[in-house]
């Protein structure tokens, strides 16, 4: 099965995605479609939003617009970020609740863009799943690495019902 033919959990077929941006979170390699990547920034000062959910704890200034900084590790059930000189903010532009919205995520390291058209997307075996199935489309093998392809539609869905901080 290639990316082109992949059935998303909802059953709709996704438009062909050929280019993926690869980045690292706590040593794992993740991939996200390049079409939704707006820019990659060196770390800038972020502003914590008091009483916000742990999923979206802060905002940053991206060229004059105020962009929520999303902690995807929370949803991927990963440990919090440790300081690293290679941290980059990846700014994405996504359709969220019918409006094109900019969001940012903090990656430990941004490595490269790869063409995945020829690569096979594999489903993650039920037993080996570390990540909530909703947030992940599958994995691809790229050289020696295993790249986890994120489902941006589900991963960035605002969900005020749970995840509220105490």
């Amino acid at each position: 099965m290639t990316l082109d033919t992949l059935d998303t959990p909802k059953g709709q077929t996704e438009t062909p995605i050929s280019n993926m941006l690869l980045f690292k979170l706590s040593g794992e390699m993740f991939g996200i479609a390049v079409v939704c990547v707006n820019e990659i920034l060196d770390p800038i000062k972020m502003t914590q939003v008091p009483n916000a959910s742990e999923f979206v704890p802060a905002v940053i200034n991206v060229r004059g617009s105020i962009v929520p900084l999303i902690d995807v590790r929370k949803r991927l059930l990963m440990p919090p970020q440790r300081p690293s000189p290679d941290i980059r903010f990846v700014v994405l532009e996504l359709m969220i609740e019918d409006t094109l919205t900019k969001v940012a995520i903090a990656a430990d390291e941004v490595s490269q863009v790869i063409d995945t058209a020829a690569l096979n997307l594999e489903r993650i075996p039920e037993l080996g799943a570390r990540w909530p199935r909703d947030f992940v489309n599958g994995v691809i093998r790229h050289g020696d690495n295993l790249v986890v392809i994120l489902n941006s539609e589900n991963l960035f869905r605002p969900d005020p019902a749970n995840e509220k901080s105490v």
Binding site: I44, K45, M46, T47, V49, P50, N51, A52, S53, F55, V56, V59, I60, N61, G64, I66, V67, P68, I70, I96, E97, T99, T101, V103, P158, P160
Partner: peptide, 22 residues
């Protein structure tokens, strides 16, 4: 504020200061 922070009570919005922070 974006849809992610709209239900956080207590803020009417945000602004950018002279040094670029929010």
């Amino acid at each position: 504020l974006s849809v992610y922070h709209r239900d956080v009570e207590g803020f009417a919005g945000a602004t950018i200061l002279g040094d670029g922070t929010v």
